[in-house]
Design a protein around this nucleic acid. Structure first.
Lengths: 136, 136
DNA sequence: TTGTAAATAGGAATGCTTACGATTTACGAA
DNA sequence: TTCGTAAATCGTAAGCATTCCTATTTACAA
């Protein structure tokens, strides 16, 4: 997923193209890490003073539903990042300081699946937290 | 960790012994899964009508700090369970319906640690979600 | 039995998120 | 290009989990 793919997906699904949606997608396309709704609001409010939180959250959910963004919960707050898992399943290391991520290609489910006979597995979460080389 | 160990730990650390603390610990000792603050409030309010949420949260945090309870975040809400990780590190399968858990002894960090040269790993989260045999 | 710090009650405040009526806007059709 | 309409946004209120605060009560040691 990149910026153009996301813009095309929006158009193909029949959603309207607005400056704010473009700027939201550009924001996430430029970031390589998890960001919160208020991170996004801080940036957009410079260009669109008084932008509604409704607009922020509505579009975050829309983009998430369209799989343009993926999300995770960190410290009780939802965080979003540009989706990078369209072509292959993987997990993330997430820097506790800057929010930037590093892909982890190994999926622990490959090792433990056999141990869950009788259980219906619906999803899983594997994330590693710490400090990236830059933030140490 | 069991109920008596928890009660002794409380006493040894100099905390006062109250009926509410006893009942909170008994609640978690009887449950074998993750429960929320309001789950707990629902139960305690029967015996102590009007019990303050302050009491609930203050004690949940106390017990968590004392490692009597462990916690995780599910669907935007903090969940707590009696700690079972004192003697050995492990992860959990968590039933999406009843909250009950099953231990996972395999830790994915054993496989991926070498791939993080230059990164300072501080913590990790691995949880599997689905339906337990009873809830299917 | 009493003194005191700890614990609790009751309720207000906070922070993130969602909801909603009124207004504006994107965009296809005329 | 203009117009009509559904979609998008605004401004603000409400919801929910959680935290905070002060007055009151309680556990427990002296």
């Amino acid at each position: 997923m990149n910026l153009n793919e996301a813009l095309n997906l929006l158009k193909n699904e029949g959603y309207k193209f607005t400056d704010k949606r473009k700027d939201i997608l550009e924001f996430f396309a430029e970031e390589d890490g998890y960001r919160t709704a208020s991170d996004l609001w801080e940036i957009l409010n410079k260009k669109y003073p008084g932008i509604s939180y409704d607009t922020i959250y509505r579009n975050l959910h829309l983009f998430h539903d369209l799989h343009i963004l993926e999300s995770t919960e960190l410290a009780g707050e939802k965080h979003f990042r540009f989706s990078c898992g369209h072509d292959h399943h993987h997990h993330h290391f997430i820097c506790n300081n800057c929010g930037k991520t590093k892909s982890i290609e190994t999926c622990p489910m490959d090792f433990i699946q056999p141990k869950f006979q009788g259980y219906m597995i619906e999803s899983h979460k594997f994330e590693v937290y710490g400090l990236c080389p830059v933030c140490q």
